[in-house]
Amino acid sequence: MSEHEEHTTHSQGFYLAIGIGLLVLTATTVGAAFVNLGPFNPIIALLIATIKATLVVLFFMHVKGASEKLTGAVVVSGFFFLAILLSLSLADYLTRSWR
């Protein structure tokens, strides 16, 4: 572990570009909400939200390029256990009506 490996901070322009990208994605998702896409409305909205969240995690929170994999593992484990909570709860709710 070297002394200055921490802080893969990027240039100011890079952060502004990511910020503008996030704003564009927000505009896109709002626009998409006014178009009737049937079952794809929620899918597109959540997909865009996930892209936005990923951008924030990777670049604003500096997980990409971090000196160690541990940070990434912590993030992934957080979402993994959230997925357990959601999926096993739904395992109950989605099969209640089955006979």
């Binding site: 998409a32 909400a33 049937g38 909205a45 959540l46 924030v56």
Partner: peptide, 25 residues
Amino acid sequence: AGLYWHLVDIIWIYLFPLLYLISRH
């Protein structure tokens, strides 16, 4: 504190479509 702020941002990034957007049609 920045990490905290970004996380609060991310939570809103999900709250916004779930509450406002996905049920308009």
